[in-house]
Amino acid sequence: MKLITHNMLTSKCLKGVTTGYPLSIKATNVKVTEVDFNPEFITRIIPKLDWDVLWSAADSIGHSEGLPKTVEPKFEDDEEFLKKAHRVLLEIEVEEGHLTCPESGRQFPISKGIPNMLLTEAEVQ
């Protein structure tokens, strides 16, 4: 699971859960893979992200070093920043671990890089 995916993932379909966001991450195995850097795409996606959540997620798996806590205006001209954002969004992957719903505490396992968000019928709204 990449952090770009984590940044939009919710557990709000759980019964009794209203936002289900952000899910906290407990990682036992994190890997880094190389992905082509596409500055235009990174520039376009940043306004859609919840940056605080991205920063905290990166921090919780030990990869916040050098990542600014806030996005500066005119960030699009700062290539160093865009490269850092690219790395955190697309190159860092949680291979094993679990996600936890902030409201219900329900855990979702991450196995071989794939979070399992499936619910039982009784858990659905």
Partner: peptide, 11 residues
């Protein structure tokens, strides 16, 4: 990146 979920129900 892949996510296992029920596309129709999961929000």
């Amino acid at each position: 990146d892949a996510v296992q979920c029920d596309f129709l129900e999961s929000n």
